[in-house]
Amino acid sequence: MNQEISEPPRRLTGLIRNFGLQLSPTPRGARLARLLATEQLHLWGLPTHPAELIVGELATNAATHGRVSGRDFRLLMYVVGDTLRIEVTDTRGDRMPCPQQAGTDAESGRGLLLVDALADRWGVVPGPPPRKTVWAEVGTDPAESPPLAPHPPR
């Protein structure tokens, strides 16, 4: 057998990295999105921080604020050059996200502030109706990953 024909072209081997799945808009679906995304990043040999936190926040927002009964949300991750792009699409295009300062005693409302702090860039793309996609991009070089903030003393 001809060796050149049986092997995939070298220029494509290992360069195409994308991952996508549909999940139920529930806390379990959001948790599964984070766990599966983290596992995929490990398989790709990429740093999990801060991508796992970003996936967790965007998936939780889709399950909480983008939930429509009977409609799933979609997680898509892909690498272009040295950038990981994370996209979460839900079916509540009428509810566009915006980061806001939550009260100091609020139990929620800080997710997009976290995404804003951890991502190199992020945004929202409307449509097609009734959908919207919230996306974030982070570098894939482990040396450039932002450090974790230390936990405050208890």
Rank of each mutant, 00 (worst) to 15 (best):
L112C: 00
K132P: 02
A33Y: 03
G103A: 14
T26P: 08
G123D: 05
G93D: 04
A102D: 06
G103K: 13
S69H: 15
S108W: 09
A30C: 06
L15C: 03
G109Q: 07
N2S: 15
L36I: 01
P147Q: 10
P128V: 10
D141Y: 07
V115A: 02
L84N: 06
T60V: 02
S24G: 08
L58K: 02
I54R: 04
G70R: 12
H49P: 00
V134W: 01
E39P: 00
W135N: 01
L35E: 07
I16W: 05
V79C: 05
R85G: 01
S6N: 06
R17W: 03
L41S: 05
G103D: 15
L23K: 09
T60E: 07
L58D: 01
P146Y: 10
D141N: 15
R11Q: 11
S108D: 07
D120Y: 01
L46M: 11
G109W: 06
E52I: 00
R28H: 09
G20M: 07
R28A: 15
G29H: 07
G70W: 11
E144V: 12
T91K: 07
G103L: 10
E4P: 04
T60W: 02
V80Q: 06
T64H: 14
G66M: 07
G139H: 11
G81R: 03
V80S: 06
K132N: 03
G127Y: 09
D90T: 08
S108N: 06
G139L: 11
E4D: 15
V138M: 06
H151D: 12
H42R: 13
E39C: 01
R10P: 11
R92Y: 10
A117M: 04
R121C: 06
A106W: 08
A136W: 04
G127Q: 10
L12R: 10
L58V: 03
S108A: 12
T104A: 14
T140V: 06
G66K: 03
E52A: 14
L84S: 07
E7V: 11
R67W: 07
L41V: 08
H151R: 15
G111L: 01
R85E: 09
M1Q: 12
T83Y: 01
A59R: 09
R10C: 03
I16H: 04
